[in-house]
Structures are given as C-alpha cells and as structure tokens.
Simulated scan of single mutants.
Amino acid sequence: MDSSTNGVKPGRATLATIAEAAGVSIATVSKVVNGRQDVSPGTRAMVEDLLRQHYYTGRGGSRQPCVEVVFAGPLAAYSNEVMEGVLQAAAEPGVAIMLSKGRIGSTPTAWALGVAKAGRSAVISVSNEMAEEDATALARAGVPLVVIDPLTPAGADVISVGSTNYFGGISAAEHLLSLGHTRLAYLGGGADAGCNQARWQGFRSTLEAAGHPVTPDRVRHGTFRYAWGVAGGEQLLALESPPTAVFAGSDEIALGLIEACRRRGVRVPEDLSVVGFDDTQLAEICSPPLTVVRQPLREMGSVALRTALRLAAGAAVDSHHVELATSLVVRASSAPPSSSARVP
C-alpha cells in the first residue's frame, strides 16, 4: 500500500476510513470535524492532518464549522471593527464566517430552518433589532444565537455581548466637567436603543449630580449615522444658548457634528468640544483627532465568536450577558471652554 495514503483507500474519505487510518474511534474523528474541544492536542493534530491529506469534505461538502454573522444595515466603521474581531477569533480554530442581512422577506421559522439546513453552527447578530420571535425560531431549530450590542432586548435566554455603556457616559461627563464645561449637550442614536439609553443616562446622571443638568433642548436622539450627526449638530448649534461641549453617541455622529461646525464656522475644540463613542479608525483620522469613549469592538467580536462556538459544542456559558470595559481616550477635539467662545 502506498504510504502516502496513510492507509486510507482511494476514493472519497469517510469518517470510518479516517478513523481506521488514525487508529482512533469514529466518534473521535467526528469530534475533531465538529470542532469539539474534548480531544487531546496530539490526536487532534493527527486527525486534522489526515483530513487535510485526504480532502475530507463530509456530507455537506465542508468539514469546517460555519458561523453566520448578521448585519441589518450597511457596513460601517463600527461593524468593520466588530467583524475584524470575529475574523481574528475564527482564524485559529479554522471557522468559516458567512455574512448575511438576516431574515429578509421570510417568516422567522422559514429563516431559522434555512440557517439550520445550511449547516450553520451558530448565528451572531450585530447591533440589530433581533426580534424575540427570530431568537425563538433559531432556538427551536437548534442554532445557537449570540447578539452583539443589541438595540432591543431579544429575550431573557439570549446570550449577548456588549460594553459598559452607562459607565462610558459617566466617563464622558466627568471629562468635560473636568475641563470646565457647564453647558453640555447629548447627540445620540435611537431613543429606544438600549445602548443609547445607557450612554445617555450615565451622562445625564453625572451632570445632574454635579449641578449642571442637560436642558431638554440640548438633547437630541436620532440614528448612529453620520448624516444624523450633521442634522442634529445643526439643531444644537442653532440654539439661542448653544452648548460649549457635546457628547456624541457614536464616532459617526461626532464626525457629522464636526462637519456641521465647519459649515457654520465653529471651531473644534476652541468653540465647541466634541467627545465621541466607539474609537473606530474614524476617530484617529478625523480633524481634529477625536476624543472618545473607547468601546472594545474587536474584543466584543472575538468574545461573541468564541461564545458561539462554545454553545455550538454544547458547552455552558458563565453569563447570559457579557459587558467589556469602556475607557476614555483623550485626543484633540476636547479642551477647556474659551472665554471668547461663540457659536454663530
């Protein structure tokens, strides 16, 4: 027998033939194929080598675990950072990643069954309004779900990964107060979005405790997109008593606000200090570089992928919701208010 075949006969390899060549049970080969962790490193390496040598594809044409990552809206700086974290975590165990827009024009049941029939090991939903019926349908189809930064609750049993949004709001407020600002504003995302509410409430409560509450006319909720930053920024800058500092609920909003300032001849940070939230690449390349509350987006993606794989392997998780720490990153878009600051 040709030694290059390691005992596997010509033709399509099967679990049985790989097991025979490796001198292990079929169950052990199956565990390796399905990404299970309860196999010794040496045995795993040997079986994986045989699987590669003999182009084992399995019944569905691929032996790789595949996780579907769902984005409801257009990809942006935020989602790109999260996706980078997912891909980094997927590279080491050799997990395939499938991008999709999720359930479009189908019922929750039909969508969930389609995901299961396609052989997806799990689904990761990124900043979507994942309806409870969608989560329920996936659970019934046997497909684990992990939600990153959910805009709305997806049910008590759904596993989610986020950041300390409330503490991030506190950090932004404390930073601007330390610079001497007392006329502050909040320009955020959707009023009903959980992450937006947490950021706003942390910011609001800190300012109220310091004796500088945000007046209702200086609070604006819209979307997390650049266009809203421009439009909402125009509204704030047009106030009779405009703010000297604004906490924006995302980097995109902050960049839109800075553009609104440019159009009106308002200088950042001389006339208006701006603090964003996320710390995407946009924060470093904008002018001036943006002070932000850093959300560990890549880490969130990595944690979500590892959690999804654990669920797919039938393992338990320690918590239904994981919050990763935010931190303040001070750059050039925030400064003490100028005595001559004015907003046209």
Results as ranks from 00 to 15, higher is better:
Thr14Lys: 06
Leu15Val: 12
Val29Trp: 02
Asn34Thr: 15
Gly35Asn: 03
Val39Asn: 01
Thr43Ala: 08
Met46Thr: 11
Glu48Lys: 14
Arg52Trp: 00
Tyr55Glu: 13
Thr57Phe: 02
Gly60Trp: 02
Gly60Ala: 10
Pro65Glu: 10
Cys66Asn: 13
Val69Lys: 03
Ala72Trp: 09
Gly73Phe: 05
Pro74His: 13
Leu75Ser: 15
Ala76Thr: 09
Ala77Thr: 11
Ser79Lys: 07
Glu81Cys: 10
Gln88Pro: 00
Ala91Thr: 14
Pro93Phe: 08
Ser100Ala: 14
Lys101Leu: 07
Gly102Asn: 08
Ile104Lys: 12
Ala110Arg: 13
Ile124Asn: 00
Glu132Pro: 03
Val143Thr: 11
Ala156Arg: 14
Ser160Cys: 11
Val161Asp: 01
Gly169Phe: 03
Ala172His: 11
Leu179Trp: 09
Asp192Met: 11
Asp192Arg: 13
Ala198Phe: 03
Ser205Cys: 06
Ala210Pro: 13
His212Cys: 14
Pro213Trp: 05
Thr215Trp: 12
Thr223Arg: 09
Arg225His: 13
Tyr226Asp: 08
Gly233Leu: 02
Leu237Arg: 05
Leu239Met: 13
Pro242Leu: 09
Phe247Cys: 04
Ala248Trp: 01
Ala248Val: 06
Ala254Lys: 04
Leu255Glu: 02
Cys261Gln: 04
Arg262Gln: 12
Ser273Cys: 12
Val274Arg: 00
Val275Gln: 06
Gly276Trp: 00
Gln281Ser: 13
Ala283Lys: 05
Pro288Val: 10
Pro288Gln: 12
Pro289Ile: 06
Val293Ala: 10
Val293Lys: 04
Gln295Ile: 14
Pro296Ala: 05
Met300Glu: 04
Ala304Met: 07
Ala315Asp: 15
Ala335Asn: 06
Pro336Cys: 11
Ser338Pro: 02
Arg342Glu: 05
Arg342Pro: 00
